[in-house]
Computed example of a mutant assay.
Amino acid sequence: MELTHINIQGRAKMVNVEEKAITIRRAIGYSEVVMKKSTLDRISQGLIVKGDVLSVAQVAGIIACKNTSSIIPMCHPLMITGCDINFKLDFESSKVCITSTVSTEGKTGVEMEALTAVSVAALTIYDMCKAIDKEISINNTILLKKTGGKSGTYERS
């Protein structure tokens, strides 16, 4: 199998996508931030001293999505046509579940943008709550689904 990110000298390269078809591409990323119950309660009640945790995390995730190619070396700069981040507070498991849905119309997919969005949103939650909860963990950062392009649809089972 030929690796598309490796040049003839065996070094990393950015894949050439000029021959690829322009299609609508979407990806859904997911991550979880596990914390103490008291921390989750404070987030839900708006009692975190640094401010509205989920609003700040949402904006941070969107900014990260739009700037993925600046921090992931082999990603192409993309015109993102949509980025939505949603949070679910799971009080039973004491975690915040984060989902990002990212779309573009282009020659390469937005999987990395979706994963970067949830990762930075999760890191922002950590940053805003670390003073009251040193045990916070970020888990299960995964691609749930992607559509478009030559390889078609992938959905995590």
Rank of each mutant, 00 (worst) to 15 (best):
R25N: 02
I138Y: 10
A27W: 13
L143V: 06
I24C: 06
N16S: 05
M128E: 04
G46H: 02
K150R: 07
L144K: 14
T116D: 12
S100F: 11
G152D: 04
T147S: 08
S93R: 14
L143I: 06
F87C: 07
I71R: 03
T108P: 01
E111M: 06
I28H: 00
D84Q: 12
S70T: 13
G109I: 00
Y30N: 07
S93N: 15
Y30C: 04
C65G: 00
Y30F: 15
T141Y: 05
Y126T: 00
K134C: 00
V96R: 02
R25S: 01
Y30E: 04
M74H: 11
D133W: 02
K134A: 08
G106P: 09
D127K: 07
G46N: 03
I43R: 01
K13R: 14
A131R: 02
K145G: 00
A21W: 00
I138C: 13
D84V: 08
I125G: 04
G149Y: 02
I63Y: 13
T104P: 11
S94H: 06
A114W: 11
A64G: 12
T104R: 02
I80N: 10
V59A: 14
A121K: 14
K145M: 06
F91H: 15
C83L: 03
K95V: 06
H76N: 09
I142L: 14
Y126C: 05
L47H: 09
